[in-house]
């Protein structure tokens, strides 16, 4: 995550036999997946299936009970490995620092690691905020923002890092459809611009099918299937089909 040794290309992520339990409850039951450099990998599944816990393991916020996670072939638990790469995560809640302004939040990584002079940081902050439709809100406090705006600031903060691996936890939840499309476009833009590897956890079928190079379907801590969006659509597993095709029907509800 250290800027001084960063490379401007996406990283490969490999997860093998990942297991995790909380208070005796097995949340991840031997997850295996491979994410190629520069690809957009979407993890889909019902609530409570272990998607967010998996993301936290990949970025090193959780320690696995068993199994291994590697970035570019190096185990992330090894000393100094995480410092070699620029990683970013967009939390579901945004996780903005409430004591800092929007601008300070977006420029936090650059300022704390002294990567750019103040003027340059201010320019980058303005640019990233404009990208997520929040131009000119640098001096606002997070408490003055709506849930969706906080999410967009969190995305701007992740973009300011110019990461090699970016993890999104429900990036389009709480956003209106127009902003959801903007975010989806930005995920694709980042891929083509800096070849960043993206791992996206989402319930949003349109987002998943629209941006993913590969999709992993996960349920009860197990991978059900991995494939391209076209391959996933063709899988006959009833749970996957239901997840991809279910529609709200007013008549049924009534």
């Amino acid at each position: 995550m250290n800027g001084s040794t960063a490379h401007q290309s996406g990283v490969a992520v490999q997860v093998r036999g990942l297991q995790k339990s909380f208070n005796g409850h097995l949340v991840l039951q031997g997850i295996d997946l491979d994410v190629a450099p520069g690809e957009i990998f979407v993890i889909m599944g019902p609530s409570g299936s272990g998607k967010s816990v998996l993301l936290k393991h990949i970025i090193g916020l959780e320690t696995p009970d068993a199994g291994d996670i590697q970035i570019n072939g190096q185990p992330i638990q090894a000393e100094g490995v995480m410092d070699q790469y620029r990683l970013a995560m967009v939390f579901q809640s945004g996780a903005l620092l409430n004591s800092l302004t929007v601008g300070e939040n977006v420029g936090l990584y650059l300022r704390e690691h002294r990567l750019k002079p103040e003027k340059e940081i201010a320019r980058i902050v303005g640019e990233k905020l404009e990208l997520v439709g929040l131009k000119g809100l640098e001096s606002r406090m997070p408490s003055d923002l709506s849930g969706g705006m906080k999410k967009r600031v969190a995305i701007a903060r992740a973009l300011a890092i110019e990461p090699q691996l970016i993890l999104y936890d429900e990036p389009t939840s709480e956003l209106d459809p127009l902003m959801a499309v903007t975010i989806a476009e930005e995920i694709l833009n980042l891929k083509s611009r800096i070849h960043v590897t993206s791992i996206v956890v989402s319930h949003d079928r349109d987002l998943a099918l629209g941006v993913a190079d590969h999709i992993a379907m996960i349920n009860q801590g197990k991978i059900l299937a991995i494939g391209t969006p076209e391959e996933i659509k063709k899988i006959s597993d009833p749970l996957i089909q239901k997840f991809l095709t279910v529609e709200f029907q007013k008549e049924k509800a009534l």
């Binding site: 995550m1 250290n2 970013a88 704390e112």
Partner: peptide, 8 residues
């Protein structure tokens, strides 16, 4: 957690 993901 956000700080830690930014290596702060």
């Amino acid at each position: 957690d956000a700080l830690r993901t930014m290596n702060i």
